[in-house]
Amino acid sequence: MLTTEITQEWMDKFYHKIEENKDYLSELDTPIGDGDHGNNMMRGMEGVKQGLAKLQKPDLKTILKNIAMSLISKVGGASGPLYGTAFLEMAKKCGETQDINALINAALDGIKKRGGATEGDKTMVDVWSPVAQTNEITQKVIDDAIASTKDMLARKGRASYLGERSIGHLDPGAVSSGYLFTALLETEASL
């Protein structure tokens, strides 16, 4: 069950993962994108951190919405509206259920609608979808999902302009989504 406490700890852990892997994410983005995914996500997570610090005794919906708006306004690249939409959909859904799987599914639907991508297009959807479908999120589920993007041909996003040249590279958005879910796993284990 997603609580305010879990969400705050989750974002704190995600922040640190982005900080540690910022250069790696930009490096992944260089051959098939515009080389700024790491910096974009770092700027977004700085915004999330600052936004959350200003809230006083917020409820879950307020926290999720605040995360969404920070990501939308700070990231700059396509990941901003996509991650932002994911958290916005979770914010809309959390009044009805706090079940993590249900919230991830709502977020996934939002990402697909916003970006127009589906499974196999070599995007973050290829990590969100297996995670949404599994009964229990494990590191293996996350790692396998990230790895699966390597041999895919990009059909959405900046990498799609490269056509077959996109094959053989991991998708940066899939990798950063992997960090998001690893951070969630670690949060659940620590509380």
Binding site: I72, G77, G80, P81, L82, T85, G115, G157, R158
Partner: peptide, 11 residues
């Protein structure tokens, strides 16, 4: 133009 512009426009 490209990429995030459509998504941010929709938002």
């Amino acid at each position: 133009d490209i990429g995030s512009s459509k998504m941010n426009l929709e938002l």
